[in-house]
C-alpha cells in the first residue's frame, strides 16, 4: 500500500479526532440526562431565559432563575458538576407564571444548561456561563 498525501491527511485527522474525544465524553452524562428529559427530541432556541450570575464567588450558593412562558416543565443541568442534574420544575394548573428561582451548587466554572418543555411538546434550551471562584461540592 502506498501512502498518498490524501491518506496521510486522513490519518492525521483521525488522530486529532481521537485526541479530542475524551472531552465530549465528559459532557455525555449531561447529554444523556437531557436526552432522557426530552425523549431524544432536539431542543430549539428562544422562549426560555436562564438567569445566572456571570461570576459566582461562592459555588455553594449560586442564585439561578428560569423563565419560559408557556412551558410545562423546566430542567436545569450543570455539566461541570459530579452529577449534572440540578432541578426539574413542573408547573401545575395554578402556577402564576412558568418561572422559578433556586439556589444551586457549582463545582467549577461551567456552562449551565436549562431545557424547557413547552405546552405543544417541543423543547427549547438556553445556556449561561458562570465563572466559579470557589467550588461548592466539597473535597
Amino acid at each position: 500500500m502506498t501512502m498518498t498525501r490524501r491518506d496521510a491527511l486522513a490519518l492525521a485527522m483521525g488522530g486529532f479526532a481521537a485526541s479530542v474525544l475524551p472531552l465530549p465524553a465528559l459532557a455525555d452524562a449531561t447529554a444523556d440526562a437531557i436526552a432522557k428529559f426530552t425523549g431524544g427530541a432536539t431542543a430549539g432556541e428562544g422562549g426560555l431565559t436562564l438567569t445566572a450570575p456571570e461570576i459566582a464567588e461562592n459555588g455553594n450558593t449560586v442564585p439561578v432563575s428560569v423563565d419560559a412562558p408557556g412551558a410545562t416543565e423546566i430542567a436545569i443541568y450543570a455539566p461541570g458538576n459530579p452529577t449534572p442534574g440540578v432541578a426539574v420544575f413542573k408547573f401545575g394548573p395554578l402556577a402564576g407564571s412558568q418561572a422559578a428561582s433556586i439556589r444551586i451548587r457549582l463545582s467549577k466554572t461551567q456552562d449551565l444548561v436549562a431545557v424547557a418543555k413547552m405546552a405543544d411538546g417541543s423543547f427549547v434550551q438556553a445556556k449561561s456561563t458562570v465563572k466559579v471562584t470557589i467550588g461548592g461540592c466539597g473535597g
Partner: peptide, 21 residues
C-alpha cells in the same frame, strides 16, 4: 390543585430556597 412540583438533585444548595409564582 397543584401549583408547582420540583425535583431536587444534590446540586441544590444547603437550605434550599425556591421562589415561584
Amino acid at each position: 390543585e397543584n401549583v408547582i412540583d420540583v425535583t431536587l438533585d444534590p446540586a441544590v444548595s444547603t437550605n434550599p430556597y425556591i421562589e415561584f409564582d
